[in-house]
């Protein structure tokens, strides 16, 4: 169970060990997460607060997944791949979170995932709204508790109440891309529907956040 997420924020200069423990821990977590338990499997937890906590930790398998965190970076540069390395080429978020003038997300990312015949990269991800989460929605480097508080805070979640938050998590198609990321990319665990149910149940149980 993930109780704390620490993501690599930088790879230090001179050492091959640089990407060591931080990113590695995150990758292991992603791999180990496997499937997503349905919300119904949490009903055995009688205490609503404990159930809410457990539900959010389950949701954390998705939230902390590279498919999600890579586009919720703490800097102006997205991350890339299961190893969550800084995006190559070194693109920046730009004023509208859609890239810099002359090198916008759409320079490389189309409306759909594009399969490639090369052996180095199997597909280029795509979506009609491909963009970065605004900087106030950054998840990279934060604990699950911090992310939880953040996504409930309208000042840091794009002005959403809990219902709107559920709608975003359960039905936004860019969020949904995380489960259909194209060849060569591990999808987020479970399905968006199961994830949506977990978020719904978490809200219904008081939207309790893990500590720390």
């Amino acid at each position: 169970m993930i109780s704390r997420i620490i993501l690599a924020t930088a790879v230090a200069a001179t050492s091959a060990l640089a990407m060591g423990s931080f990113a590695q821990g995150q990758q292991d977590a992603a791999k180990a997460s496997g499937d997503l338990r349905p919300a119904s499997s949490f009903t055995s937890i009688g205490d609503p607060t404990q159930r809410s906590l457990a539900l959010f930790e389950e949701a954390g398998k998705v939230i902390a997944h590279p498919r999600c965190v890579n586009c919720h970076p703490a800097s102006d540069r997205p991350l890339q791949g299961n190893a969550m390395k800084p995006h190559q080429p070194p693109v920046v978020r730009g004023a509208a979170n859609m890239g810099a003038p002359g090198l916008q997300c759409t320079t490389c990312h189309g409306e759909k995932n594009t399969p490639l015949v090369t052996t180095s990269i199997r597909s280029v991800p795509g979506h009609p709204q491909w963009h970065l989460a605004p900087i106030e929605m950054a998840w990279e480097g934060k604990s699950l508790g911090q992310i939880c508080e953040q996504i409930k805070d309208p000042a840091r979640n794009g002005g959403k109440d809990l219902a709107a938050l559920h709608e975003h998590m359960a039905h936004d198609s860019l969020v949904g891309w995380g489960w259909t990321p194209g060849d060569g990319r591990d999808p987020a665990p479970g399905t968006q529907a199961v994830f949506g149910e977990i978020i719904k149940a978490w809200i219904a149980t008081g939207a309790v956040c893990p500590k720390g």
Partner: peptide, 9 residues
């Protein structure tokens, strides 16, 4: 900086 950002690719 704008040149760096635009031409980085």
């Amino acid at each position: 900086q704008a040149i760096n950002d635009a031409m980085a690719g």
